[in-house]
Structures are given as structure tokens and as C-alpha cells.
Design a protein around this nucleic acid. Sequence first.
RNA 1: GGUGCCAUAGCUCAGUUGGUAGAGCACAGGACUGAAAAUCCUGGUGUCCCUGGUUCGAUCCCGGGUGGCACCA
Length: 305
Amino acid sequence: MQKTLIVIAGPTAIGKTSLTIRLARDYNSEIISADSRQIFKEMAIGTAVPEPEELKTVPHHFIQNVSIHDDYNASSYEHQALAKLKELFKVHDLIFMTGGSGMYIEAVCSGIDKMPNIKPQIREKASALLKNNGKEALQEILKKADPVYYSETDINNPARLVRGVEMYWQTGKPFSFFRKKQPRPRDFNIIRISLDTDRDVLHKRINQRVDQMVAKGLIDEVKNLRQWQNLVPLKTVGYQEIFQYLNGATSLDEAIELIKRNTRRYARKQLSWFRRNKVTSWFAPNEYESIKKHIDDAIRQEKTL
RNA sequence: GGUGCCAUAGCUCAGUUGGUAGAGCACAGGACUGAAAAUCCUGGUGUCCCUGGUUCGAUCCCGGGUGGCACCA
């Protein structure tokens, strides 16, 4: 029996959670979350994790099971999610994956090339070079050490430059040696569904959700994390803005407005990511019957193949 | 009621000594293989309030109107 992963992608606040829970119940299935922030134990309100009642109705995986103090990235997620899928496919033919982190979804669907971990000292050295000598210094190194990556990547983007340089320093080999970008075949089928709706509707939902987060105690949640504000997982919309407020840089009202604006921008970037995938089918979040029909048709097609 | 000032992008405003206009924010699009809710790139979206006049040509100058603000009654 061919196993199938159904991926429900969509921008933040569009209604992925409730839609996927309903689907997973109808198909008697389970849900794998592909969300780079809901995965952290310490972050709940600001990442809009599903409510306890929702989590009870259908088994969820990768919700709040890692600490912000752990090293975690898209590659860790790929391996854990694949292992979990293998386990779940022993009892289910159909598993749902939903979340807003495009890179996490791609990691599971297509895979990320295997690469060595970077030692913290090397990472710090590369960041220090960027800070002290600017991105030009990193560009110079890459130009000589890794002309392939240098010509392919966005050399204005410090994050890309640091990555290339630290990989070279760590291994003595160019980053492009590891970065093959070869999609890895999976032993399960993938059905991709993406959600979108009118922009003003989405913006309204985002604004409401942010107000709800504040009402649920976002400020207190962020206050408790204040000493960790420089950790990467906390470089997150909803947290950075409240840190700014707690640090006296903005008023609370300003911080809340900034969260709304930055969440709108985040939603736009997510959509941009999901549009890259040309095999996905697009639906509005309220088109439940059409979505179900699409899934049933896709499964039936697979069976006849 | 009188006088003065203002009216240009979604918002706040700049500007054109007359040749159909540009900043910030908002917004839109894109890139992205180990931080990805990160990081980076690109884009002005417009009856220049309406209406007459002057002019080859008016968003700009002049008259009238409408709306807003301020002050005086």
C-alpha cells in the first residue's frame, strides 16, 4: 500500500490549524507540524500553537518538543520528521503535515544535502569578520575559495556569505562542494495543498490574532524570556517587538502595531515561498469540500497507477 | 458673516522660476540548502480637489466654486 503525505501550506493566521484538524479527523490520521517556531517549548502564545482542546482531538507532532537552548535547524527537522513519518506510516496510509515554514516543508519533501556541523568558534569568527570588516571581506574570501557559490548566491546577503565562509573554514572545501541541491526521492507520495485568500481578509485575521495574543498574555510570556532575547529562536515576530517595548525603545501600542505590520510582511514572504512550488493546488481555507475531493481524487489516481 | 492659510500616492508631506511629479511610512513582487517568523533584492501604486481664463502647453499663474484649518466678529 502506497503511503501518502498531504502537505497543507499557507500563510500565518489563514486557518491551517482548524482546517487540518478537521481533515485529520475525517481521515482518522495524525498531524506533523512544520513550524520553525511552534516547535519550541518556551514559546506558545506568540507562535499561536494550537489550543489544548485542539491538540486533544488529533495527535500532533513537533509542537513544543524542543528547547530554545537546543541547536535546531531545518536539517534536524528533516531527519526527525522522516523518522516520525516512517513510524506513523506503519499504522496510517495518510498523514497530514501543516505549517508555515517553507524551508521545513521542503526539507521533508525534497531533502537537504548532508553537510558537516559548524563549530561555534568558527561561526563566531565569521560573524566577527562581518561585523569588523563588512561583507566585502567575506565576498573576497568566497570569490577565491568558492567561485561557484559566489556566482550563484546573493552576495549582498550577509547570512549567505557567512554560511559560505564558515563552511570553507571548517572543511577546507567550498560550500558548493556540499551544496548539490539534489532533490532526494521519498518512498511516500506527496500531495500538496496551499491556502490563500483575499489580502484584506488575511490582514484582518492577522490583526485580530495579534490582539488575541496580547489578551492571552503575550507580554508575560515574552517577559519571562527576556534574558534569552538574543537567542536565535527568539528572533521572531511578536517577541522582538515586545522586547523592544520592555527595553523602553517603544510604547506598548507601537510594539503591537509593529507586530501586526511584521506579521503581514511575514505572511507575504510565506506566500512567495509557497508559490515557487508549481505542483501545489491552491484553495481558499473555507473550501473544505473541494479540498477533500481533491485529496480523494489524488489518492484514487495513485492507486490506479 | 469677514480675513488668512491649505487641498499632490493608502497616510504624512516635498516639488515643479509653466513642459503631466517624488521622499518616508504603509503596500506589492521576488530570492533563499543547516538562524528560515532569519537574511537579502526589486517596485511608485497618482483625474496633482472641481471649474473657467491666460498660454503652444497649467498640478504650478489669475478668477469662481467646494472642502478643511486658524483667527476676527
